[in-house]
């Protein structure tokens, strides 16, 4: 009986092929997910003995003004950057998709380059540019204008983070849109041209509607990316000023690695994961209804 189970047949072969991946996922994926879930119901502090506290960590999260502020911040940062970034990516992709555009490959590479830049390096670059005594303020000073406290004002700091995200991710989304645009039948554009449609009309009446699914995809990716925003705010402002750029991932990091409160950090991680999944499900449903 055992022998026949181990035998490679056309029925059992897929399981053998999947086994290494499944085992690795179980050990390095499923196990941490389950362990974190268990921790989220415990008062797990460092290596001290922990006890089961039920929903205590989850209740604390919804009463924690820092967590609520971080959620509010992420929403504001999303509103500040997502529409601009997606629209900019679409425009760039559309321009690079036009047969009349010169040096398309060069521009494509140039726009994509920020995405392969290390987050630490580019955050440092923005800090050099925008700190109180940064290059931009020195230039403003030289031309006799008043300096701007880019990183000392909570609202301005949110804008700086948004600009950094746009700078880094617009090129990446542009490549996705460009790939989708290249799948649009050129006859549609030719027919529209015969009917006298301008480039703007073609963009809004043909390109955008046919890219609806891709736009949904990039929006979901942007939401997920924004909810997990970390390096930029930690390195640029460390969540300040006045919690103005404090984001959930930074809070989770500080709770886990500065306070060593792994139970609460696990609960916060689960809340963020659930929010991400819920938003994705809602968006997919809206997308499906419209189809």
């Amino acid at each position: 009986m055992k022998k026949s189970c181990l035998k490679i047949t056309s029925e059992t072969a897929p399981y053998y092929f999947m086994a290494p991946g499944a085992i690795l996922f179980a050990v390095f994926g499923a196990y941490p997910i389950i362990q974190t879930f268990i921790y989220s119901f415990q008062n797990k502090m460092g290596t001290r003995d922990s006890t089961f506290i039920g929903l205590g960590n989850y209740i604390r999260a919804f009463e924690d003004s820092i967590f609520l502020t971080s959620l509010k911040n992420i929403l504001v940062i999303f509103i500040m950057h997502a529409p601009v970034m997606i629209f900019l990516s679409l425009i760039l992709a559309y321009i690079l998709n036009l047969s009349t555009t010169k040096f398309r490959k060069g521009f494509r590479t140039a726009f994509f380059l920020p995405n392969v830049t290390n987050a630490v390096a580019y955050t440092f670059m923005f800090k050099l540019l925008l700190s109180n005594d940064g290059i931009l303020n020195q230039v403003l000073d030289m031309i006799g204008l008043q300096q701007i406290q880019w990183l000392s004002d909570p609202f301005m700091a949110k804008w700086v983070v948004s600009i950094m995200i746009i700078w880094r991710w617009a090129g990446y989304n542009m490549v996705i849109f460009l790939a989708a645009m290249q799948n649009i039948n050129v006859h549609l554009y030719e027919a529209a041209a015969i009917d006298g449609a301008s480039n703007t009309q073609k963009f809004f009446k043909i390109t955008i509607p046919l890219l609806k699914n891709t736009i949904f995809f990039t929006t979901i990716m942007t939401i997920s990316g924004t909810l997990n925003l970390f390096a930029e705010t930690q390195l640029l402002t460390n969540g300040g000023p006045n919690y103005g750029t404090y984001v959930p991932a930074l809070l989770i990091y500080n709770v886990a690695w500065k306070q060593f409160n792994f139970g609460y950090a696990s609960a916060l991680s689960y809340i963020i994961a659930i929010i991400t999944i819920l938003i994705a499900v809602i968006q997919f449903n809206i997308g499906r209804e419209k189809d």
């Binding site: 909570p154 969540g239 300040g240 000023p241 500080n254 500065k258 306070q259």
Partner: peptide
């Protein structure tokens, strides 16, 4: 104590930054 880091963080964000602004 073990909560010193969060104390520093809160003083920075709720006292120092607002006064600086």
């Amino acid at each position: 104590n073990e909560h010193y880091a969060i104390g520093e963080d809160i003083v920075a964000n709720t006292i120092i930054h607002p006064i600086a602004s």
